[in-house]
């Protein structure tokens, strides 16, 4: 058994008096792709935020590579790709500038790009097929290009752990395939990838592990072990999505 790169021990997060995540335990190994599955409002986003150290924990702890995320503030260890709805697409910023923001953690305090930063940004753009669109304002992109812009930022950041929030929402099949290919490539380079989704059909094809979420982590492990009718009914509250089996 490999060392886990992400560990949650009895993590509870609550807002006011509502418990968003209760007593969650989790281990994710390095170099794997884990799909986080749950309905809207099941606590997927809270789980992400807890892993990124953005939530105050009511109890328990989160360890990243064996260390507390709040203590080390490790730069560039975590890379996050937000949901499409969470981004202000009218923001006056170009594709190039967004990808360059992935490099800020490596720059001096004035954030002046060095030669290496420009080179890595160019490579990241090429890898996500965005070359030629650098100067586009981000709102002028197609759905797939928008996703790939943030994926390029993640590549430029060279993080070890990549979190993607609903990456396949609103993208076409071709883009979905391209994203999955890129994620598999990254996994084979040793990166750890977490994907949240409420779409079960696609993740089964490429995830090494699935994590079922409904106000807590109900189960995690390989698809064969975890995708039992009972677990799924607990995840989706009895309404198991059609077309899964």
């Amino acid at each position: 058994m490999q060392n886990p790169t992400i560990e949650l021990e009895n993590v509870t997060v609550s807002y006011d008096r509502t418990v968003a995540l209760h007593g969650a335990n989790l281990r994710v190994n390095q170099g794997s792709i884990a799909g986080i599955v749950g309905m809207n409002g099941s606590g997927k986003s809270t789980l992400f935020k807890a892993i990124m150290g953005l939530e105050k924990l009511r109890s328990g702890r989160v360890l990243i590579q064996g260390k507390s995320i709040n203590k080390i503030h490790q730069r560039n260890l975590l890379a996050y790709i937000p949901q499409t709805e969470a981004v202000d697409w009218d923001f006056p910023i170009s594709v190039y500038d967004v990808v360059m923001m992935g490099r800020y953690g490596y720059m001096n305090c004035l954030r002046i790009p060095r030669e290496i930063d420009r080179k890595i940004v160019q490579q990241s753009l090429a890898k996500t097929q965005l070359t030629g669109l650098e100067q586009r304002q981000i709102g002028e992109l197609s759905g797939g290009q928008k996703k790939r812009t943030f994926l390029a930022r993640t590549l430029a950041q060279q993080g070890e752990i990549i979190l993607l929030d609903e990456p396949f929402a609103g993208v076409d099949v071709k883009t979905e395939k391209a994203i999955i290919e890129l994620l598999i490539e990254l996994r084979d380079l040793g990166k750890t990838i977490l994907i949240s989704t409420h779409d079960l059909s696609s993740i089964a094809t490429f995830c090494d592990q699935v994590i079922l979420v409904n106000k807590t982590i109900l189960a995690y492990g390989t698809i064969a072990d975890v995708f039992t009718p009972e677990n799924l009914s607990r995840t989706f509250g009895g309404s198991v999505p059609q077309g899964l089996f």
Binding site: L54, L78, Y80, V87, M101
Partner: peptide, 9 residues
């Protein structure tokens, strides 16, 4: 633009 990214880096 993206306070979450700002935090994570």
């Amino acid at each position: 633009f993206d306070p979450v990214h700002a935090r994570t880096i």
